[in-house]
Nucleic acid binder design. Structure first.
Length: 256
DNA sequence: ATGCCGGGCGAAGCCCGA
């Protein structure tokens, strides 16, 4: 059995202790972290001293993804030859055994009036779909985890109408996400959670957490050939009630 | 409420997030 975590921590250095708590509690095999906001040489020592190989696509101060893999497993870093996908530190693909672990932090794209930012988001999603299609075509075992920055439907927000004019719920954003799904990927939350009941992000402002005014924007997608291995999917909401929490909470996936 | 928090950078105020 394998346990996989995905989590946008909103600064790895600030959230290192929370991440270590999660590791001790769950003992995951693979951990995909987004928004680390630092470079590889700035990873806290407390994380380097654990029994994990650490891979980083980092940037000074913003974005950044990190994947931790339990040691003593065959590991390969997959090259991404795409200047749009690699323009900012938002993607990292590690092959562990036969499975591609695709760690992504999709662009936010706001504000919509800033066409450059929103166009970059859409372009990024299109380039990613091209890559994701290749994995499907090659019949590769693929698990995509991360912050997709899309509110796919009205059940993915407590108050969907409040997001109508946001890049996350824009029709182009939703369309590109659905194109990704239509390649054949299974969105794990849809198999395990009742629509409208679970979120993965609550804003720091306006008491969003206390009012449960959340959105579901973090996901685990798996290729069709992995679905028979799918055992469980959880969203660990309790991490949002800790002191100095991330605004996202961890997703936890179990494969046989 | 068109960033009210929170974080990074760098040392004040701007960028970024969703």
């Amino acid at each position: 059995m394998a346990l996989i975590v995905s989590w946008n921590v909103n600064s790895l250095r600030v959230r290192a202790n929370h991440l270590i708590d999660l590791i001790r509690k769950k003992n995951p095999d693979v951990i995909m972290i987004q928004e680390i906001k630092c470079l590889s040489n700035e990873i806290p020592d407390s994380l380097n001293n654990l029994d994990y190989e650490i891979f980083v696509n980092g940037e000074k101060g913003k974005y950044g993804v990190m994947t931790m893999v339990k040691k003593k497993q065959p590991i390969k870093v997959i090259d991404i030859n795409d200047h749009i996908l690699m323009q900012e530190a938002r993607i990292l693909i590690i092959k562990v055994g036969a499975i591609n672990y695709v760690n992504i932090y999709m662009p936010n794209g706001n504000p919509l009036e800033n066409t450059e930012k929103f166009n970059f988001k859409i372009q990024w999603m299109e380039r990613f779909n091209y890559l994701a299609k290749k994995f499907i075509n090659n019949l590769e075992f693929t698990l995509i985890g991360g912050d997709f920055n899309v509110i796919e439907n009205k059940n993915d927000a407590k108050n969907f109408t409040e997001w109508k004019n946001d890049a996350l719920a824009n029709e182009l954003t939703i369309d590109r996400f659905r194109k990704l799904i239509s390649l054949g990927y299974v969105n794990c939350v849809r198999l395990f959670k009742e629509p409208g009941k679970n979120f993965s992000f609550w804003d720091y402002q306006r008491g969003s957490w206390e009012r449960n005014d959340g959105i579901l924007i973090d996901h685990f997608l798996i290729s069709p050939n992995l679905t028979r291995k799918l055992l469980n999917f959880e969203i660990d909401e309790q991490f949002r009630s800790l002191s100095k929490p991330s605004d996202h909470v961890p997703l936890i996936l179990e494969l046989s």
